[in-house]
């Protein structure tokens, strides 16, 4: 028998291991993905496209995109600040903050949704009626401002909302639930990265006279950009795909508070399988794009950092 390194198994064992892994992967990951596309196209392209062009479907897509467009930047901002705080400074309560960031991972999404219903629901601590009362002066002020030019439409919308501040079973609730659930992604991606990089380069920048924002933009950010990008990617994928928490707070109002995952569920429950799977292909496609970008990022960052210690 040929000599081989002590850490390598025999060819037979290797082949068995590899084929087992491939079998499991295709059975559990590839097969469902193929099934989604196959089911969506079973009744032809026309039905597929029609299900996506449906008014209610378009509204769900719009809502999902809007919720992601608000929660992803918010959590990016939060994640970067939290990672910066936790890795560059030593302070009391640091460990507590670290575990707090993980809370949304630990809590079931249903609970995450119910909490907001409990706080902002009509029988909650801060029901819309009480909030409307408290916010009435602000509503009046903004309504008067809306009469002037410029962002009048935006201010008018804001004033209308302040007059009837619904959070649960409305768009704000969906955003809050999404923000809560996707809270940890960016921070969790950045903290180990920034921890491993240490503060040497930042300190060097300090001694060279750089100010806080210069240090962040010119030293910290370039060093974490790929990790940050990946974190944002994951955060976005989750924000668009979140089901549980959003399902609880949204109230499933068709064409109004149904996000894409909720819309898919409604269609499925109504036995509109082709339409349900057509919409599901969008989310599946999002997953594929996310994974593709992830590999691209890994390739680019690995390429760039080759030769680094």
């Amino acid at each position: 028998m040929a000599l081989r390194p002590s850490t390598t198994e025999s060819p037979l064992v290797r082949r068995i291991l590899i084929s087992t892994a491939l079998l499991v992967l295709s059975l559990f990951l590839l097969l469902p993905l193929t099934a989604v596309f196959a089911e969506a196209l079973r009744r032809g392209w026309e039905v597929f496209l029609a299900s996506l062009h449906d008014e209610v479907a378009l509204s769900a897509i719009h809502l999902t995109l809007m919720a992601a467009a608000i929660s992803v930047p918010l959590n990016t901002l939060f994640g970067v600040s939290a990672a910066w705080l936790i890795t560059k400074y030593r302070f009391k309560g640091r460990a507590f903050l670290l575990s707090l960031i993980d809370l949304p991972f630990a809590v079931s999404p249903v609970i995450a949704g119910l909490v907001w219903v409990m706080i902002f629901g009509s029988k909650g601590w801060l029901p819309p009626t009480a909030m409307a009362e408290a916010l009435a002066p602000a509503a009046r002020l903004i309504a008067s401002l809306a009469e002037y030019d410029g962002f009048g439409w935006l201010l008018a919308d804001l004033a209308a909302w302040l007059a009837d501040p619904k959070i649960v079973f409305a768009f704000p609730g969906i955003v809050i639930a999404t923000v809560f659930v996707t809270f940890p992604f960016v921070a969790r991606e950045l903290i180990p990265l920034m921890e491993s990089q240490g503060s040497d380069q930042e300190e060097a920048a300090v001694t060279l006279g750089a100010r806080g924002w210069q240090i962040f933009l010119r030293v910290t950010l370039p060093n974490i950009k790929w990790g940050l990008f990946y974190g944002v990617l994951l955060c976005n994928a989750r924000a668009m795909g979140e089901f549980g928490a959003v399902s609880v707070v949204s109230g499933h109002i068709r064409g109004e508070t149904n996000t894409l995952p909720l819309h898919i569920e409604v269609l499925y429950n109504e036995y509109q399988f082709s339409a349900a799977f057509a919409c599901a292909t969008l989310l599946a496609f999002l997953a594929i794009v996310t994974l593709g970008m992830k590999s691209l990022v890994e390739h680019l960052s690995g390429h760039q950092s080759s030769g680094h210690k």
Binding site: D200, Q201, E203, A204, T207, R218, V219, P222, N223
Partner: peptide, 14 residues
Amino acid sequence: GVGFVFQHYALFRH
């Protein structure tokens, strides 16, 4: 106005 050289140089690698 100090010039500081770090043990592991801390060069900006990008």
